[in-house]
Design a protein around this nucleic acid. Structure first.
Lengths: 242, 242
DNA sequence: ATCTAAAATTAGTCGAAGCTAAAATAATAA
DNA sequence: TTATTATTTTAGCTTCGACTAATTTTAGAT
């Protein structure tokens, strides 16, 4: 399927008119804390890096978030989400993942472009929109990366996957998700059919350089470098009888 | 077709966390000037009312827009869009109308709800998104209200329609668009099948109270009050032979 | 235990976009 | 004309989110 990419600058218009420095806000901080900390505590710097913002700004916001009962925070101790904060964060995550799903499946975006657009959109849509979109998409449980989509109530499926690089040679594994930290690699993996749900046989893991060799269901062999094999998360599967 | 309306507040969550006073920005002002002025000049007050903002803020913004070459403006003389300003405004209008179309046709929104959501979304989406969405929708020329959708180049179909209230009794007219100034009425009209494209015969226009009586293609008669007949825009049609 | 480097916080500013109250200008009516 | 009213503008403040520079605290290494 070829999707003609329509230039976003047909007008040759200086987008500069619409500069609107997105100015990370409450929600972004909550999400960043959630991403940075799992369940634990997020450092000022973690969040600063994630949001491309100065550490000072983060300190500032941590204090404000505390006022709002969204985080627990003590100077020099980092911040962790309260129940309320967590549910707010997951609400955004839900939006983000549903939007990504829509962009990829219905609008012909590729993995490169999706993240940025979703990041902007998730702040503009209402809960109402989100739920209608979920309906439209058929209430998917996972986004195309394989990441679980939180429920509207803020529940999130437990993730018991681990990086391909830590699998046992000789094991059968199924791709659970593909981490989207390094955007460049996603299209590459997708191009080789290495997408969530794919069943693989782990042939070899070379200790020296971390290269993982796998064979897929079609008998194709793939060698994944160190960083790739850390982006692909898998779960063990019983050996298929075939 | 019944669309289950999913509550936007399942969480019982105080949306107050996400207050983000939308804070009208450059684009909103341009659009407001465009809407308020047709091609002419928009007064401070016009725009202030449209954006629910103080006149002082508008004066302020007019000066800034002038700096950016988006409007021509002289103190006490109101503002009018430059070519650049106009194209920017139409870009937003295009976004808005495409988004409305999507919400109505694919997400099950009704006319009441659509406007507000589109208003927020149009600021978040990129030109790239807009064009992909247009593709997805099949490059519609009009939105569901009947309003023409500007091209990506900023061209806008001329509108030679006039309010139903000004039609000639005995004329055949086709509904061109339904103005969305008064949101409440739209669903009402839609419920009676009075939507863009509908062919009507004008039976009577009562001068005293402005009530217009029309008969539709199915032989139904509708009486539209003064304000309704100013919201429905029509064009003359040759009498159909049937 | 002390020193040093990294990380976090404080203090002080900035720009955007808004507001109110007071002053200035334009428009209308007498 | 002149007076009254409506609209605009000016001036001065507020809040939000961000920034830099300087300071304090923590943590790691000797």
């Amino acid at each position: 399927m070829i999707i003609t990419k329509v230039s976003s600058n047909i007008l040759g218009m200086n987008d500069s008119v619409e500069i609107r420095a997105p100015s990370a806000s409450v929600g972004d901080y909550l999400k960043a804390i959630w991403e940075a900390s799992g369940e634990g505590t997020a450092s000022t710097k973690d969040v600063a890096v994630r949001l491309s913002v100065s550490p000072a700004s983060v300190t500032n916001m941590f204090a404000r978030l505390r006022e709002m009962d969204l985080v627990e925070y003590e100077r020099y101790r980092g911040a962790s989400l309260t129940e309320l904060g967590r549910s707010q964060a997951l609400r955004l995550v839900r939006r983000h993942r549903l939007i990504e799903t829509f962009l990829l499946e219905h609008l012909g975006y590729d993995w490169q472009e999706v993240h940025e657009e979703a990041e902007r959109l998730e702040h503009a849509v209402s809960d109402g929109f989100t739920e209608r979109l979920a309906e439209f998409l058929g209430h998917p449980g996972r986004d195309p990366h394989g990441d679980p989509i939180p429920t509207p109530e803020g529940a999130l499926e437990a993730d018991d996957s681990s990086p391909l690089g830590e699998a046992e040679p000789g094991a059968w594994v199924r791709i659970y998700k593909v981490s989207d930290e390094s955007t460049g690699t996603l299209d590459h993996l997708g191009g080789h059919g290495l997408v969530p749900g794919r069943l693989l046989y782990v042939e070899e893991i070379r200790v020296v350089d971390g290269v993982v060799t796998v064979r897929d269901e079609d008998g194709e062999t793939h060698a994944l470098g160190d960083s790739l094999s850390r982006s692909v998360f898998v779960r063990n599967e019983p050996r298929p009888r075939s």
